[in-house]
Design a protein around this nucleic acid. Structure first.
Lengths: 161, 161
DNA sequence: AACAGTAGTGTTATGAAATAACATAACGCG
DNA sequence: CGCGTTATGTTATTTCATAACACTACTGTT
């Protein structure tokens, strides 16, 4: 695992609150209804935590933050919720970070691409264009189900110091 | 972690032996010499195991296989060797598998792309063309250091059953 | 050759991430 | 209602990775 760690919590990502948070959760609710999926309490709670977060969250951060009065969740509760959220395209796992983010894009496709800052830890999702790679896969005879791309480097803010 | 697991050890990847193995190790030795890097015994041993392997190897597989007479290595020995091999571009970590493969391509660039079969576990490295993604990153103001792409699906052989 | 500095290794212990397995509850429907 | 399916709760364990520190081996200098 890389690290350049020069400490910047500033120049943060959004991290939804209040109105916007409720709207996002509502949208998820609706998308679940459309496909007869159930956004149950633990699933909703984990999604809420991800949406509130301003950076990729580790599973055990979620476990710790899950319960109201300092009562943590048990690991399987959170891992199962994450699995569900990933399956529906509401969240992504960032493999090189062992961490999770809410999906910031439209579409529920099983494609994701991230720019990850080695300095401040921010992870920005961007619209992936996998044309070239899908062509390569096709050439090799592979039937691709999902693609993830993770680019590591320095975000604009961290480049400047 | 996904799985479709329909068991196929057939249609395997190469997995070097004898002549070819020695040639690959020799090449690594030479490339180290060029940059004043030392391919020490544990590093060489881990690279050898990776080259011999016909599929991505887990760190603890390497740990177990490391020693001659069933004597396993200690974790840090192998993890340190892997770190070195990755740094020099001799090996790649496949994040979505928690596993390692020897680099099958020329060039020591910090770019890697894999087609991973969810059925047989094979991982095929292919020449990455990240033009589109690098353009996106540039547009976002990121200074990219390294990129990894992992595509999951079914390999040609597994598609047929 | 003696030395100092750096890079690499050995070893013990511990920490972090994820899952297995099984019991219980809630939902959807004939 | 009663049955199958989906989801949750809970305990325990497994798998993956690193911290910390002592020791050794190479490198270049004088």
């Amino acid at each position: 695992m890389h690290t350049a760690t020069c400490e910047h919590d500033d120049h943060d990502h959004p991290g939804l609150t209040g109105q916007a948070l409720r709207r996002a959760l509502g949208a998820a609710e609706r998308r679940c209804a459309e496909t007869d999926q159930r956004l149950t309490a633990p699933r909703r709670r984990v999604l809420e935590l991800l949406l509130e977060g301003d950076a990729p969250l580790k599973a055990y951060d979620l476990i710790a933050a899950f319960g109201e009065a300092g009562a943590p969740a048990k690991p399987p509760t959170v891992y199962r919720a994450l699995e569900f959220l990933e399956r529906l395209g509401f969240a992504h796992r960032i493999e090189s970070l062992n961490a999770y983010v809410p999906c910031r894009l439209e579409g529920d496709s099983h494609q994701a691409a991230f720019l990850i800052c080695d300095c401040c830890g921010a992870a920005e999702e961007f619209e992936p264009d996998f044309t070239a790679q899908l062509a390569a896969a096709k050439g090799a005879g592979y039937a691709v189900e999902s693609i993830t791309l993770e680019a590591r480097g320095l975000c604009p803010a961290c480049r400047k110091d």
